[in-house]
Design a protein around this nucleic acid. Structure first.
Length: 415
RNA sequence: GUGGGCGUAGCUCAAUGGCAGAGCACUGGACUGUGGCUCCAGUGGUUGCGGGUUCAAUCCCCGUCGCCCACCCCA
């Protein structure tokens, strides 16, 4: 084998594509009902767009971005996530001047230079949702309810919905200090990764999987106890709204989002049927980000779903189905080939999926008709041409008969 | 970036330090123009690549590339 797709990049072939279409179609249908509008964003942005929004000391920016200089010597980056570009778009076009909230969704590939593993690729697809301009928890509740509706629409029900609040500029620093104080004396007993996190991203220590660390952090202060009045009310109202909307969720005080821009509400949807990369959707509020991009102080919230991971779950739940043709037209001889194509065209124009035999032996044509699951075969040879007829055969039932070429249309549209 | 596992036919996998195999799939035949079931035959491989040990390497050793899984991090 001479060529293969680059590491972490994959081809999606027809048997799998039906799941992707179901996911995309459902997203469009559900999101539209909630008043969200599609936008299409560039796959490349100025590198600064990501550095300033995601945060300079995050892994994504430090080591996972596909960054290069274009021919005009500009530093550009293949988008590693969608929110940054969406916010840039919102500010660039002055969309805050339109009535709030402005609600958008987009779908497409993202790129991160990571070691591939189950459910993780260097090019991966997300469907992202962003809503701007409302600070009230009603927007949080609606967007989470919409995510729940969407997941139900594609047939996924047994998922874990986890919710947390990581506070705002006012209360998060206070909480971080409390956590730091708690860990200070015993941090050397934690794993090397946690020791690194202690100085870079202390909240991450909360979701370390190392048993020793889980044990050592028992009794650590929780964010929920350190939220400021404002954030606590917001969170309480949100949970009440979700209960009113019958959206099932559980609280997870250790749910920490990695990107710098998140504030207040964070949430994540996971499945037990995936590998270590089990999050199928995640999101949260980012009330300060629009201002970072030079727009007016505009609260916002969004989430992204991982299409590959959802497709994997759908595939596990039910086998792939391919659309089978209604009619297969087997022909023998040049003249019959022509007549066959003419009939195929007419049947298709009448809305019937029709597949021609492409002139192999009759046996192999019928064998192919069977393999691809055609319902009927129409056989046209010299005998039929001279009498102006064709043989029809029901491949499911094994029945066969004769039909005049002129009657073929009505024969198949009726049956 | 770190750790572990695996690379043999299109796919799933055998095998022995001594001619590289099976099942499925594909093509054809049994059935001059009738699919599925059955039987028969055929096509298909520099055993990932490069070196080394050996009379002889798919097997043993080293390197390299690729894939998978996990860590970090994340959808």
């Amino acid at each position: 084998m001479k060529y293969s797709a680059p590491k972490g990049f994959q081809d999606i072939l027809p048997p799998e594509i039906s799941f992707w279409q179901r996911i995309e179609d459902s997203a469009r249908a559900v999101f539209a009902k909630y008043g969200f509008h599609e936008i299409r964003l560039p796959i490349i942005e100025s590198t600064d767009v990501f550095v300033r929004s995601i945060g300079e000391i995050t892994d994504i920016v430090e080591k996972e971005m596909y960054t290069f200089r274009d021919k005009g010597d500009r530093s550009v980056t293949l988008r590693p996530e969608g929110t940054a570009g969406a916010v840039r778009c919102f500010v660039e076009h002055g969309l805050h001047n339109l009535p709030s909230p402005q609600k958008f969704y987009y779908a497409g590939p993202m790129f991160r230079y990571e070691r591939p593993q189950k459910g993780r690729f260097r090019q991966f697809y997300q469907i992202g949702v962003e809503a701007f301009g409302v600070a009230q928890p009603t927007l949080d509740a609606e967007i989470i309810a919409m995510l729940n509706d969407f997941l139900n629409a594609i047939g996924l029900t047994n998922l874990n919905f986890e919710l947390n609040s990581i506070g705002c500029d006012a209360c998060r620093p206070v909480y971080k200090e409390a956590l730091q104080l708690f860990l200070k004396d015993k941090i050397t007993e934690f794993c090397p990764d946690c020791n690194r996190r202690y100085s870079t991203n202390i909240l991450r220590i909360l979701d370390c999987k190392v048993e020793k660390c889980v044990e050592l952090r028992g009794g650590a202060p929780a964010v929920s106890g350190h939220l400021c009045e404002h954030c606590r009310i917001h969170f309480d109202e949100l949970t009440a709204l979700l209960e009113a909307l019958d959206v099932p969720f559980s609280l997870n005080a250790n749910l920490v989002r990695g990107l710098d821009y998140y504030t207040k509400t964070t949430f994540e949807v996971t499945s037990e049927h995936l590998g270590a990369q089990k999050a199928v959707a995640a999101g949260g509020r980012y009330d300060k980000l629009v201002k970072v991009f030079g727009g007016p102080d505009t609260p916002a919230i969004g989430f992204a779903v991982g299409v590959e991971r959802l497709a994997a779950l759908l595939q596990e739940a039910s086998p792939a189905e391919q659309v089978a043709p209604k009619v297969f037209i087997a022909t023998l001889g040049k003249q019959a080939d022509t007549e066959g194509l003419r009939i195929a065209k007419a049947l298709r124009n009448n809305g019937l999926c029709t597949e021609p035999g492409y002139g192999a032996s009759l046996k192999s044509q019928l064998r192919r008709a069977d393999r691809i699951g055609a319902e009927y075969a129409l056989i046209i040879g010299e005998n039929e041409l001279s009498s102006g007829t064709a043989q029809w055969k029901n491949l499911k039932q094994g029945t066969q008969g004769e039909v005049a070429l002129k009657e073929v249309q009505s024969f198949f549209t009726k049956s």
